[in-house]
Every structure is written in C-alpha cells, then in structure tokens.
C-alpha cells in the first residue's frame, strides 16, 4: 500500500517565530486589523510504501523524531491518505 504523507512542522509554543511575528506586524498596513496569532511552519509532502496505515504512521513518526523535526523546539502533525500505486 502507498500513502501520501503530509508532515506539518510547527515551532512549539513559546519558541520564537520571527517570520510569523513580522507577517503579523505588516498586516495592519494592508488593512487587516483583526488578525492575531500568526505562526509559520513547514509543510513536507512525500509518499511511503507500507503494509498498512499503522506501519506507515510508525515509520513517519520515527522519521519526524529523528530528522524532520528537532523535538526540543518543534512539533509535527502527520496526515496520511492512501493513494493508488501506478501499475
């Protein structure tokens, strides 16, 4: 089985996010006065082959822990969807 994976990497609460802060500060100049709490992050997409969804999720969680995130400052949210394998 093949799964389409979306990993959203976000800075943990309390970790400085200069991009988010700068975007938020610039919004009033464009007339958007009611936006708050802007936080930026990364979206990483890939496909993974696995026996089932649980196995795919285990592999992706391990990948996130060891490489895609630094657990000291970042969290990851993983979304999986089965996709067709071309024959």
């Amino acid at each position: 089985m093949r799964f389409a994976v979306l990993v959203e990497v976000a800075l943990r609460p309390g970790i400085a996010d200069p991009q988010g802060a700068t975007i938020e500060r610039s919004l009033p100049a464009l007339g958007f006065d009611h936006v708050s709490g802007v936080r930026t992050g990364k979206a990483i997409r890939f496909s993974i082959d696995a026996d089932g969804e649980a196995s795919a999720r285990d592999q992706v969680d391990e990948l996130c822990r060891r490489f895609l995130t630094n657990p000291v400052i970042e969290d990851a949210r993983v979304t999986l969807a089965e996709e067709a394998v071309p024959r």
């Binding site: 970790i15 400085a16 200069p18 802060a21 700068t22 630094n70 000291v72 400052i73």
Partner: peptide, 18 residues
C-alpha cells in the same frame, strides 16, 4: 553538535527577530 546530540538543547531564532 546539538543536532548530533553531542550537546543538549537547541539554538532557536534570536529573541529580537534580527
């Protein structure tokens, strides 16, 4: 060295955003 776990903790972006 922190990413390699040879030293603990991490370096985040500067507080002053610059």
């Amino acid at each position: 060295l922190t990413e390699a776990r040879l030293l603990p903790g991490a370096l985040q972006k500067n507080r002053g955003l610059t």
